[in-house]
Structure formats: structure tokens, C-alpha cells
Computed example of a mutant assay.
Amino acid sequence: MKPQISREAILMHPRALRVAVVCGGPSPEANVSRASSRQVLDALASLGHVMELFEYGHSVMSALIEFVPDVVFPVMHGGPGEDGTFQGAMEVLCIPYVGSGVLASKLAMQKPLAKLVFRDAGLPVIEGGALKNELRAAEDIVRALGVNLVAKPSSEGSGLGVTFCSSVADLEAAIADAQLYGRDLMVERRIVGMEVTVGVLDTLDGSYAFAPVEVATPAGSWYDFEHRYTPGLSDHILPARLSTEVLAELMSVAVRAHRALDCRDLSRSDFLVDERGGIFLLELNSLPGMTATSLYPEGAFHAGISFPALLDHLICRALARGPG
């Protein structure tokens, strides 16, 4: 069944909406953000809104005040655009914005914190947790979790800084490299399985999960930064080649994860599914990518929602919700 979306808030507005699209910033994912913003602007152009693109920086707040937007559409990945910092500024300025609020954004960005919330909510997470940048901890971690591990920065996305470990030396190298992305890592037991992602959209009928998307990459590779954003280096299979029962469970867990962090408007949860059909929730992205190769708009399109209609719906929700 197609999710129920509405334009009522926009149709009741006395004039064309002024929409500020904000992208960029200091994050390593800034160029991905800029690519997403171009897709968003092109789609919004067909809707009749008054749009302006803003690069995140020291002067962005004064520029937004001068523009007087009805809605801000943050198209940012990584901090400070996705970790609650920008959302807090919008709260202070009393400007409605698309996406999750301050706390949900912060939790989603901090993977170890999100993992704790997911575990408390009874969701299927992988054994592991946060690790400070301390080389002496490597042997203790291997002793507790085994030698086959995955280490990743606690607050980065797009596969940045992920290291697959098969020895204490590998883990020690990963801990040392953590300085590139901040001091903290999350270390988990390595699960071999299918990479799957599920988008969630808040609608008039509640939170709606898109069909799970299987992400396939060439043998010996995985869905890292290069394979995410280079056309042709990954295949998106929708729906994923899994049983009806596993597909339904993936969608259920994605909605429960969205609610556990108190997300709003949209999110995308990433999973691994092992050969026995076991589901493992990896993380939740509160501002999914909107590039030409992004998975979230693909899931929406499969659900019968065009990209312009998806953006229109998100703007409508922000406008109806109002500031704060």
C-alpha cells in the first residue's frame, strides 16, 4: 500500500514557500552533501518554491535570517549538520526544519549511544561497544570478542574510517587511525552477511518502512565510500533477495529503531543479514543521502513516491510542525 502523504500545509500557505537548502560544512562527507543538495534543488525547482542554497559556515546563520525562510531543508552529512548542532541553531532561531530534532540527531550520530538505546529497546545489535583511543585495550577487546572484528569511528558515516580486523595488530592500527576522525571508536564482532538498508518515512498514517534494499558489490569489496558514490560500483536490488518473513522483520526493526531514537520525518537503518537469516542492526542515519546513487530516494520511488513528491512531503511536515 502506498504511504499517505499530503500537501495540506503547503496548499493553505498564502504564497510560494521560501525554502533554504543548507549543505557542505567541515565534515569529510561535505562533498556528498553538496551532491545531495544539487539533486534536491533540481527536484524542488518543479514545485514552485522560492529556493536558495546555503553553504554551511560561519556566516550561514546571518544569511538564513536575511533570507527569512519558511522552512530549512538541511542536506548535510556528518557533524555539525547531522549531529544536533545545526538543529539546535534552528531551534534558537525558531525556523522550522526538515528532519529529526536535537537529541535524536545527536543519538543517531553517536553510534555507541544509539547502540545502547537499540539494545534497551530489544533490537538485534552486534556484540561490542565503544572503545577509547587506548592501544593497551586492543588485547582485552580481542580476548572478549574474538579476533574477527570491525572497528569504526563513533560518529562518522558513509563507511569512512571502517577497518576490518583479524589480529591484535590490525585493531591497534585501527585505534591509532582513530585520531583522523576523533578519539573514540566502536568495535564490534564481525558478521559476514548481506548488506541491507531500510528507509522509514513518517506519513499521515504513522511511520512507514520502505522495502528493504540489498546492496551488492563486487567480490572482495564492500559498500565503502567509493562503492557508495561511484555509479556502477554497486547494485541495488529491491526488494532484497530474502524470505518474506525476513523482509517483514527488517521493516519492523527499522520502524522500531526510528521510534527508539525519537526520530521524525525520515531515517534509514542499515543491517547485515547472515546466511541463516539472522538480522543485525548496524546504525541509523537521521539525514539519509539524496544523491543520484542514494538508497533512500530509491526506496521511496519503489513505494510509489517520486523524488519531488518526497521532498514536498518533508517540507510540508516541517511547515505544519512549525518552529521549536
Rank of each mutant, 00 (worst) to 15 (best):
M1W: 02
P3K: 10
P3G: 00
M12K: 11
M12P: 00
H13K: 05
R18D: 12
V21P: 09
C23K: 15
G24Y: 06
L44E: 06
H49D: 12
M51S: 12
D70G: 02
V71W: 06
V72W: 03
T85K: 05
G88D: 09
E91W: 00
L93I: 09
I95W: 00
A108Q: 08
A108D: 03
L116D: 07
V125E: 02
I126Q: 05
E139K: 15
V142K: 01
L145N: 04
V147F: 10
S154L: 05
D177V: 02
Q179G: 15
G182C: 14
R183K: 15
V187G: 02
V198K: 10
V200F: 04
T203N: 01
Y208L: 11
A209Q: 08
P218L: 08
G220P: 07
Y223L: 13
D224T: 06
P239V: 06
P239S: 03
E245R: 10
E249K: 07
D262F: 07
R276F: 06
G277Q: 08
G277C: 09
E283V: 08
L284S: 12
N285E: 15
S286R: 02
L287D: 09
S294C: 15
L295P: 15
G299Q: 07
A300V: 05
C316V: 06
R321C: 01
